[in-house]
């Protein structure tokens, strides 16, 4: 029976290994400098890149972070300080609910609020949809990280005559910052590859656009379009795009691990 658990471990890690091997094998051969610097070419022409999609993804991540980080950190501060109020319980439960909602559901409600009324798709709507997904992730990790900070530090600051708000920000939040940064990075990694919330909001763009009011290209959308298209050239680009996307996400995930390890190592008691 013990051998079976070893087998389970091998079988569970096998898909990851397979996916990474295929990504590298099929993606690397299609990668070139042009992939990062060029625009998509029309059908039938070979070459071309995803410069607009890479930039678009970065812009979407930026908009999402502007929404998700401050709200999530603020909400996390509230939860960590008001542990047992009815509002805290409600917020904790609903942030789990929000975290579990299918991303496509978040996508169509963003469409209902931000696309339908104005009559056109936009980068802003996509960023808001992704930001909505970030909020519960950042909220819960912020709360967890703040609770690790010993109460004695908070008391020491209060005893020095720090007002509550300064205690919370300059001492408690500051001490937990590395952990919160890790949580933020994990949240960014999680939304960076999201496609479904963008289908009816950012929708994608064959052209160069950095405007928040226009449709914008994104790597996941471009991978989806190329993977499901009929041309071999597109398939090659989809693999290259996937390799780039997974590299970005892996770098962020690994950075998150190291952020915790190297900077949170200052035990107080």
């Amino acid at each position: 029976m013990i051998g079976l658990t070893y087998l389970a471990a091998i079988l569970a890690t096998l898909p990851l290994v397979l996916i990474l091997v295929h990504l590298i094998a099929k993606g690397a051969s299609s990668l070139s400098l042009a992939f990062f610097t060029h625009m998509p070419r029309p059908v039938g022409e070979s070459g071309g890149g995803m410069a607009n999609a890479i930039v678009g993804t970065l812009i979407l991540i930026g908009v999402a972070s502007l929404i998700g980080l401050p709200i999530g950190i603020g909400a996390g501060l509230h939860l960590a300080e008001k542990r047992t109020t009815p509002l805290a319980y409600t917020v904790r439960f609903l942030s789990d609910v929000l975290n579990g909602l299918p991303s496509i559901v978040i996508g169509i409600s963003a469409w209902e609020f931000l696309v339908r009324p104005v009559g056109h798709f936009s980068a802003l709507a996509g960023g808001v949809a992704l930001g909505t997904m970030m909020v519960p992730l950042v909220t819960r990790t912020t709360e967890e990280m703040l609770l690790v900070v010993p109460t004695s530090l908070r008391e020491a600051a209060l005893a020095l005559g720090y007002p509550k708000w300064r205690t919370s920000i300059a001492v408690v939040l500051r001490t937990a910052l590395a952990g919160i940064a890790t949580g933020a990075l994990v949240a960014v990694a999680r939304i960076a590859g999201e496609t479904a919330p963008l289908l009816f909001t950012a929708i994608g763009n064959q052209f160069w656009s950095t405007s928040l009011r226009e449709p914008i290209a994104a790597l996941p959308l471009q991978i989806f379009a190329y993977a499901t298209g009929p041309y071999d050239e597109w398939h090659r680009l989809a693999w290259a795009g996937a390799l780039v996307l997974i590299t970005i996400i892996l770098i962020i995930s690994i950075a998150a691990r190291f952020a915790t390890r190297s900077r949170f190592g200052a035990p107080v008691d």
Binding site: I19, L23, A192, G193, A196, A242, L245, S253
Partner: peptide
């Protein structure tokens, strides 16, 4: 195993197709 959760859905789809 944790990394499996970090792989974007669309990449799973791509791998699934091809």
């Amino acid at each position: 195993v944790d990394l499996l959760a970090a792989i974007p859905s669309v990449v799973y789809g791509l791998w699934g197709i091809f």
